[in-house]
Design a protein around this nucleic acid. Structure first.
Length: 112
DNA sequence: AAATTGACGGGTG
DNA sequence: CCACCCGCCAATT
């Protein structure tokens, strides 16, 4: 497994229950600011074998981004079961549920 | 070797 | 807030 991939996996594993992170945010933290699409690839490849909390990853708009209908519904249920509020269109309030790893930025810093 | 393909994102109007 | 457009990048065709 490549270093970048390794980091992405670790980061996704570190997302606490009831919180979410975006593809771009994870990519940046793993060392590649423009690697959002690689994060997608990692999820496709390892979400099962590495038992990742894949449902805690959403896009920058704060929306569930999965294409597949079934999986999308599955993700909604998974998030709601952790207490996260998902609206009718699959949107989540990012400023409320986003996880800010301390290595990058804290919510206070962000709001400042 | 060139084109295509995504669970993407930021800038612009 | 929204729609568009364009840049990204590695795996797969």
């Amino acid at each position: 497994m490549q270093p970048f991939t390794r980091k992405v996996v670790d980061i996704i594993r570190s997302i606490p229950e009831g919180r979410v992170m975006t593809y771009g945010q994870i990519a940046e933290m793993a060392g590649n600011r423009r690697g959002a699409r690689q994060v997608v690839r990692v999820l496709h490849t390892y979400s099962k074998s590495q038992s990742l909390p894949w449902h805690r990853v959403i896009n920058a708009k704060g929306q569930i981004a999965i294409t597949d209908e079934e999986a999308r519904y599955e993700q909604r249920l998974a998030l709601e079961s952790e207490g996260i509020v998902v609206d009718a269109n699959g949107y989540i309030e990012l400023d409320r549920w986003r996880h800010y790893p301390s290595e990058i930025i804290t919510e206070d810093e962000f709001l400042c």
